[in-house]
Nucleic acid binder design. Structure first.
Length: 272
DNA sequence: CAACCGCCCTGGGAGC
DNA sequence: TGCTCCCAGGGCGGTT
């Protein structure tokens, strides 16, 4: 699924093709993804230039004169720049038709993604964006921040760092890997983790995300087969998906548990 | 308020 | 081989 590095890579990939272009049309072939696609969206963007694009957490925001087209890739979404003549594939739900004879095409088999319209004045208090935590790669996100925010909380540390109110963009895979790298046990209550451990954890989160972005969002991914289906480089993962296998550091057996309904794996010896 | 859980959805894999 | 079942996941929204 697209994690923050994939979203960032997607943005960098599409931006040169869309920035400054005029939007000829917005075409939706589906009424709703996670939420209904606003009927007024087509009218809002038609004939308007794309002024820019940015990322906030896993949300992509395409800037128009009167507002922002918000895109979320959910679990299975992708955006591609295609020629205007490109035939439709299964699950191609929406097109942003540009005046350079190209189309920004949204595909999402599981429909957990989102396409919304935010009028310019609402950007800063939009319900989806207002309460988001800091960007993990920003300077304000550090061990001290995690330490202060976690005091008195009984929620386990893995759920805490995956909560977008704490910090955005830390999905299940990167959370598991960062906890392993920093030697923090995922089930420990967030409020009981020391400042020093949070310092190491924050560094680890930045490292796994920045490393993935530097490699084009594909550190953990490998495109297998001709269908573009992503798989993760299992040999690069320390713990995710490896329950029952040997810890690469100590050789002990990795333990699998469910945390907040998500599969989680850790090394009982290396993570305390 | 914090914490938790159900739900949305489809493809793929396991099991029979 | 084909069917059924279950699982994966982010994050909202409702409940405790």
């Amino acid at each position: 699924m697209p994690e923050l590095p994939e979203v960032e890579t997607t943005l960098r990939g599409i931006l040169p093709a869309i920035e400054g272009c005029r939007t000829i049309d917005f075409i939706s072939r589906i009424e709703r993804l996670r939420w209904p696609i606003p009927p007024e969206l087509g009218e809002a963007v038609r004939g308007q230039p794309v002024l820019g694009g940015r990322r906030r957490g896993k949300y992509l925001l395409l800037e128009y004169p009167s507002g922002y087209l918000l895109l979320h890739l959910g679990m299975s979404g992708s955006l591609r720049i295609v020629a205007g003549t490109e035939p439709l594939r299964r699950h191609d739900h929406a097109d942003i038709v540009l005046d350079n004879h190209k189309i920004l095409r949204f595909n999402d088999p599981r429909r957990f993604g989102a396409i919304l319209w935010i009028v310019r004045e609402d950007l800063n208090n939009h319900p989806l964006l207002r309460l988001l935590g800091p960007e993990p790669l920003a300077d304000e996100f550090d061990g001290g921040y995690l330490y202060r925010r976690s005091r008195g909380r009984s929620q386990c540390v893995k759920s805490f760092i995956m909560d977008s109110h704490t910090v955005v963009g830390v999905g299940n895979i990167y959370a598991a890997e960062a906890l392993f790298l920093s030697g923090v046990r995922p089930l420990t209550a967030a409020g009981k983790v020391s400042r020093g451990r949070y310092q190491r954890l924050a560094v680890a989160i930045k490292a796994v995300l920045a490393g993935a972005i530097a490699r084009g969002g594909t550190t953990l991914r490998d495109f297998v087969g001709g269908d573009g289906k992503p798989g993760y480089f299992r040999q690069q993962l320390a713990v995710y998906g490896r329950q029952g296998e040997a810890c690469r550091r100590c050789g002990g057996v990795l333990r699998g548990v469910r945390i907040g309904g998500r599969a989680s794996v850790y090394c009982p010896r290396c993570q305390r």
